[in-house]
């Protein structure tokens, strides 16, 4: 069994989706953790310091390359699977099977993923591109160090209600994507023991609610003026 044979089989393609998915879940934890520093409400001192730490250290920078590769792998493989799976039934049913046994979001992972991808493009153009490639205003931290002022960029960006709405919609798409993806990825990786599945299901729903909710609260907090 060659590697190519493994990863081009239907089960292998799902293993790719699951492994990259789990990595992206881990990334979300780091991302939400760093961004939550805005609620220190200290004019962005802690947040800018944390963001700068990730930006200038070699380990996060290497992980960033991996993150991009895994994102692309997850997106490309996901879209290919969606197209392939749809092609397996050329003539559809007159009466649809509906929600029996399954939830709408578990059947709409392709759509939800595409919405997240659109959001991701906007999101990267908003913050990642300015921070990495174009000129960005700097701010002096309390220890005299000059760092990119991502905080003020967030503050400025989230004064626009349309941007806030797009971000909240992006987070809702993410929530439903995770509601199915979290548990499903572990089952794809072969977890079938009842006790672990029950645990992963609860953990998955909790993660799918908490993480996107915290993310969504960030633009809302700036817009509402809860953080200055």
């Amino acid at each position: 069994m060659t590697w190519a044979q493994v990863f081009t089989s239907s089960v292998g393609k799902k293993i790719t989706m699951a492994l990259t998915g789990v990595f992206l879940i881990l990334f979300l934890i780091v991302h939400v953790g760093v961004n939550a520093c805005i609620w220190f409400n200290d004019g962005g001192e802690v947040f800018n310091r944390a963001a700068n730490f990730l930006g200038e250290n070699v380990v996060p920078r290497i992980l960033e390359i991996g993150l991009f590769l895994f994102f692309i792998l997850h997106i490309v493989q996901g879209l290919m699977l969606e197209v392939q799976n749809r092609s397996k039934r050329s003539i559809g049913y007159a009466v649809s099977y509906g929600n029996r046994g399954s939830r709408w979001y578990s059947r709409s992972m392709g759509l939800l993923g595409t919405l997240i991808l659109l959001f991701l493009i906007i999101h990267l153009a908003d913050f990642w591109v300015p921070s990495r490639f174009t000129h960005m205003s700097e701010v002096q931290l309390s220890d005299g160090k000059n760092v990119h002022n991502l905080y003020s960029l967030m503050q400025a960006r989230f004064q626009n209600p349309f941007i806030v709405i797009i971000y909240v919609l992006g987070c809702i798409s993410l929530a439903y994507h995770l509601a199915h993806g979290f548990t499903s990825s572990f089952r794809t990786l072969g977890v079938h023991n009842k006790r672990y599945i029950a645990m992963l299901r609860s953990l998955g729903y909790a993660f799918a609610i908490i993480v996107p909710l915290v993310f969504a609260m960030m633009p809302v907090s700036f817009y509402m003026g809860w953080v200055k």
């Binding site: 089960v11 029996r100 046994g101 079938h192």
Partner: peptide
């Protein structure tokens, strides 16, 4: 490919569990 929607289990006349799919994986 399987995306674990669990629609199969709900319609199976013998109520085969999707746990088997995870085991296959």
């Amino acid at each position: 490919a399987c995306t674990f929607t669990e629609a199969c289990e709900a319609t199976c006349p013998k109520e085969i569990s999707v746990t088997n799919i995870a085991r296959l994986n």
